[in-house]
Design a protein around this nucleic acid. Structure first.
Length: 753
DNA sequence: ACCTCAAACATTTTT
DNA sequence: TGTTTGAGGT
């Protein structure tokens, strides 16, 4: 037997060497799902299948990368690099760029991220003069996205009475109009949102039989990871592609389907047998990851769900220690508990930071945990939240890049037309937008073809012409020079570089460093790219599809991982903390209405605890700080669903500094109301301070040359005074920060002698 | 056009 | 509690 088949168990091996035809692998948590996929691909290659004929779709870029690496290690880079491997979105965007003219898009189309989509919807709602309290941008975007994921275009929406009725009930009668305009504007901007990448691919295959034939021939073997999380449109595409050779292999676990909010349809995996009647299926039920206690606990939870494919996950692993469940008084207390436990285990067992993960239901929970870890000097990394590419300064610079590649990109243009300041304000932009809409062109086309427009005064026209000149130069540079050269030029000439360089505040310095990091990344890209594909457009192709996990830095290696349970899917850690196990939190309040939603929360919890290899810690707080006040909370029902004999329950006694006020601890409500009152008082005090300051401040006494103290900037020197009375202003120089103009009325400056 | 502060608002998960 | 929006002033 070949070496690569030796380290597989019987079932795994059957799945790997299965001949042609539809194949479904139901893989329980920790049962070696990725191993089966990679080995199957290796097996196909060994059997002489051309790597160009294999399409492997994963859920994240990271998973794709990891698979490619594993395959490369066994079979070599020259073969593995030719595999089609990536997320649905990245693979299909590549195909769409290749075939773009067929669907009437330029090759350099932009990919709008969620924020771009929201901004566009916001402007459409404004232009239509609709009530923004009824038409909430987030909701509208979600609805459009859900419709698209179910392959309901705006045309189909108009034909569907039931959907129209839903919107009538929600008093959003203009929804269809917004959807239609949104779609047209995206097209006019040569932009696609995430969902378009799927829809347009399907349309491409539907409208052009020759293309369908071409890609069916190309992708003779199709493998799909995390099949339980595919949505309807993905399902349709795959079905079309696979319909000729039927060599489709799907791997998944219905018990880990957690993305229904994104349109994932658990029916896809449950109905596989109907779609492909002559299918074969294997079940991987042996768990290699977790202690038997953890496996048993996981089983006891998931059996509460009604809808599922029957399977029994078991393990040969030792029993291990019991799962610790701890009740804490507050979210901060929970944070301290986690931090203390981590450092304790680290000392006793010589575990490394990267052995630990803290998982939570919502991103907002990271704050309290972060604070506790910082206090204990435990290094950590947070995934999710604001990723590198989402930061303002990065998005600003990227917007210039986007414009250089596709000047019709409306959202990019709006973002930077007045950043850095060049005196093109809201009124001008509104005018431009109106003109663009009326002659059905893009804003850029209006700006680029200005000839003595009567609606704009001469000064404004001059500014716009200058802007057009700049962008046109960027277009030329990005076409002619390599990505690094072009991006550096753009960073400098746009004014972003100096804008950030001159900001010497700590945040400003950080922003400047981020810009440099981006440029370094581009430099790296150019050094590794082929000559013919080292342009800025090549670099920008996938940027919108990158996430936090794809940009891991080297120095992030030995750190405690903090992430949402969703983000933890597919990962494993020796020690796992699942925090915030409270009703309305986990299960989340948004999911409490329906049985289906609750079952999904349960699957999410199942995913959470099956991440753990050795030890699992569950915690909940009886009170949590939210929206500026303490909210009482109850233990999550999921804890009670776990088999008692797997658990060891504790109540966490707060650390020493709180023990001093022990008498308050007798009644948690008491301490909460106390804290709350204290907080209120603080706020009131702030207000009073502000008022009194107004009356008795040193406003009148402050003179040029004096040293003053500011609450956040520290000591500075007055270098200029202007205005009188309430409008009296001072220019103050703070060392290390720079000059600031401030109204004395508000600045609360104290004279320093 | 730009700047500032206070009021209003908001948290589910993400390619 | 943080962040975004809007009013009102320059």
């Amino acid at each position: 037997m070949e070496k690569y088949l030796l380290d597989l168990n019987k079932e795994q091996r059957k799945a790997v060497i299965h001949k042609d035809g539809p194949l479904m692998v139901i893989a329980g948590a920790g049962s070696g799902k990725t191993r089966v996929l990679t080995h199957r691909i290796i097996h196909l290659l060994k059997e002489g299948i051309n790597p160009f004929n294999i399409l492997s779709l994963t859920f994240t870029n990271k998973a794709a990368k990891e698979m490619r690496n594993r395959i490369e290690n066994i079979i070599g880079n020259s073969i593995s690099k030719n595999l089609w491997m990536g997320t649905f979105h990245s693979v299909f965007s590549r195909i769409l760029r290749f075939e773009s003219e067929k669907i009437n898009y330029p090759q350099n189309f932009t990919i709008y991220d969620t924020e771009d989509s929201k901004q566009l919807i916001k402007s459409i709602i404004k232009e239509l003069n609709l009530d923004k309290d009824i038409y909430k941008t987030g909701l509208i975007r979600n609805r459009i996205s859900t419709l698209k994921n179910n392959f309901i275009t705006y045309q189909k929406y108009y034909e569907n009475k039931e959907l129209a009725l839903q919107d009538q009930i929600a008093k959003r009668v203009e929804f269809g109009k917004i959807y239609q305009i949104y779609q047209n504007r995206c097209h006019k901007a040569s932009a696609m949102d995430f969902d378009d990448l799927l829809i347009k691919t399907y349309e491409l295959l539907e409208l052009f039989p020759d293309l369908l034939e071409k890609y069916q021939q190309k992708f003779k073997y199709i493998l799909i990871d995390e099949y339980q999380d595919t949505n309807h449109i993905q399902y349709l595409i795959v079905k079309k592609l696979a319909s000729k050779f039927m060599n489709i292999c799907v791997v998944g676990d219905d018990a880990q389907s957690i993305y229904s909010f994104r349109g994932a349809n658990i029916q896809n995996i449950l109905n596989f047998k109907n779609d492909y009647p002559n299918y074969t299926s294997y079940k991987l039920e042996q768990n290699y990851r977790s202690s038997s206690t953890i496996v048993e606990a996981a089983n006891s939870i998931i059996k509460n769900n009604e809808k599922q494919i029957q399977k029994t996950v078991w393990t040969d692993n030792p029993k291990g220690e019991k799962i610790i469940v701890v009740k804490t008084t507050s979210d901060n207390d929970e944070g301290r508990l986690v931090a203390n436990t981590i450092s304790e285990i680290q000392m006793r067992k010589q575990a490394h930071c990267h052995d630990f993960a803290i998982l939570y239901r919502t991103n907002a929970q990271s704050r309290a945990l972060e604070e506790s870890l910082r206090k204990k000097n435990i290094p950590y990394k947070i995934y999710g939240g604001l990723s590198f590419y989402q930061r303002k300064e990065i998005k600003d610079l990227l917007a210039y890049f986007r414009l250089a590649i596709n000047p019709n990109d409306e959202e990019a243009l709006k973002r930077i037309i007045n950043y850095p300041r060049r005196g093109i304000g809201l009124t001008t932009l509104q005018n431009l937008s109106l003109m663009a809409n009326s002659n059905n062109s893009s804003i850029w086309e209006v700006i680029n073809n200005l000839d003595n427009n009567s609606k704009l005064n001469n000064g404004t026209q001059k500014k716009l012409k200058d802007f057009a000149l700049t962008i046109n130069e960027f277009i030329i540079k990005s076409n002619e020079k390599d990505a690094y050269f072009a991006s550096e030029e753009i960073a400098k000439q746009s004014g972003i570089f100096s804008e950030l360089y001159n900001d010497k505040s700590p945040e400003g310095v950080n922003r400047f460093e981020n810009i440099q990091e981006l440029l370094n990344g581009i430099k790296n890209f150019v050094e590794h790219a082929e000559k013919e594909s080292n342009k800025l457009a090549d670099f920008m192709q996938d940027v919108a599809l990158l996430t936090d996990q794809d940009t891991e830095k080297d120095n992030d290696f030995n750190k405690v991982t903090m992430m949402t349970v969703h983000a933890a899917k597919g990962l494993e850690f020796p020690y796992v903390f699942v925090v915030g196990l409270e009703e309305n939190m986990f299960p989340n309040i948004m999911s409490s209405e329906s049985q289906e939603a609750l079952e999904e929360e349960r699957r999410l919890f199942y995913v959470a605890i099956t991440r753990a290899e050795k030890r699992l810690f569950l915690s909940f707080a009886s009170s949590r700080f939210k929206w500026g006040q303490f909210i009482d909370s109850e233990k999550s029902r999921f804890i009670d669903e776990i088999d008692e004999k797997c658990l060891e329950k504790h109540e966490h006694l707060p650390s020493s500094e709180l023990k001093k006020s022990k008498k308050f601890m007798l009644n948690k409500n008491q301490i909460d109301t106390k804290k709350y009152a204290l907080n209120l008082n603080k706020r009131r005090l702030k207000k009073v301070n502000y008022l009194t300051n107004n009356d008795y401040s040193d406003t009148e006494k402050i003179k040029n040359g004096m040293n003053v103290k500011h609450s956040s900037f520290g000591i500075g020197k007055i270098i200029n005074i202007s205005g009188e009375g309430a409008n009296k202003k001072a220019t103050v120089f703070f060392s290390g920060i720079g000059q600031k103009n401030m109204l004395l009325k508000f600045a609360k400056l104290q004279i320093v002698k």
